[in-house]
């Protein structure tokens, strides 16, 4: 007789942020195997970018891939296109880009922490963190005009400037958030019943993280010091006080801690940026079309 039971989870499930389907093979309360299916959100963005849109509107299209990380995709594609064109982005625009990326990181990390606590069955913590995330969303709205899905980055710089009022609001918001984050660090590290759920659970070893190409807080929690902010020199991260945060144990607890410490680092960076923002243009025009071949003509990456 079979001793295991199969439990389906998804494609729509309360604990999932995005549609994804798992099929867990459980032995009593222990998961011994899992089968996953991720093909629920194919929207043809890639094809649309290649055929329907001109190169300068592609950043706005790819921003629609993810509503929450609104700047990440558009910034990456913008910078890819810029590297193929003649021109220079002004330092001020670069700093503003970092500011937005870091604010985006703060609210995204907070969302993740909220969901981690909700999945541990701690709904009060979820409410608290989501409540503290709200000022950051309002800050984003103040800077860009939208809470999510802001088309802030464009080829040649950014679309909006910030003024002294925004600087003051940013500083007060970040100051309040910093004290809140320190409370969370205390809570996440000293709460006994949260430790029961997080410590030594879901551990990813350093070797596995290296072998499976883990990235982000997941990799850094295992002790793998990989961060695109330090490895790529596209944005002047070393000038604004970036420090890489690395965990040790690789379990959920370490991931939470890495996220919380990164939020603290991001707050520090944002404050440095708004305090020492240089004067200058936010948008420098890039002329012509990007150099290079069309997709069909180009060789695969490793050969070129």
């Amino acid at each position: 007789m079979k001793k295991t039971i199969q439990i389906p989870l998804g494609s729509q499930h309360i604990a999932l942020l995005e549609p994804i389907k798992f099929r867990f093979e459980c032995e009593n309360e222990k998961i011994i195997a899992v089968d996953s299916d991720v093909g629920f959100v194919h929207r043809g963005v890639e094809r649309a970018c290649a055929t329907k849109f001109s190169f300068d509107s592609v950043p706005y299209v790819v921003a629609r891939i993810c509503g929450l990380c609104a700047i990440t995709h558009s910034l990456a594609s913008t910078m890819a296109i810029e590297s193929l064109m003649e021109g220079e982005v002004s330092p001020k625009a670069n700093y503003l880009r970092i500011l937005l990326v870091e604010l985006d990181r703060i609210h995204s990390h907070l969302l993740c922490l909220a969901h981690v606590s909700e999945n541990a069955g701690y709904e009060a913590m979820f409410m608290r963190i989501m409540g503290d995330r709200e000022p950051i969303m309002e800050l984003l709205e103040l800077i860009t005009g939208n809470r999510v899905q802001f088309d802030y980055v464009c080829i040649g710089g950014v679309n909006r400037d910030i003024d002294s009022r925004i600087v003051a609001t940013t500083q007060t918001t970040l100051n309040t958030l910093k004290s809140k984050i320190q409370e969370y660090i205390a809570e996440f590290s000293s709460n006994w019943s949260l430790a029961l759920k997080y410590k030594n659970i879901g551990t990813l070893s350093l070797e596995d993280a290296y072998r499976y190409n883990a990235i982000g807080p997941l990799a850094r929690a295992t002790g793998l010091a990989t961060d695109v902010r330090s490895s790529s020199k596209l944005l002047p991260y070393d000038e604004v006080g970036f420090k890489i945060v690395v965990g040790e144990s690789g379990d959920i607890y370490a991931r939470n801690m890495v996220r919380l410490q990164e939020i603290l680092n991001s707050i520090e960076m944002c404050r440095n940026i708004v305090e020492g923002l240089p004067e200058g243009e936010i948008l420098t025009p890039f002329k012509g079309k990007p150099q290079g071949k069309r997709l069909q003509d180009s060789k695969p990456l490793e050969e070129s």
Binding site: S117, A120, G121, A124, M125, S193, L196, K197
Partner: peptide, 12 residues
């Protein structure tokens, strides 16, 4: 108590 604690697992 509900507002102050996460869920424990079966084993615990």
């Amino acid at each position: 108590i509900r507002a102050a604690t996460p869920r424990v697992t079966m084993k615990q």
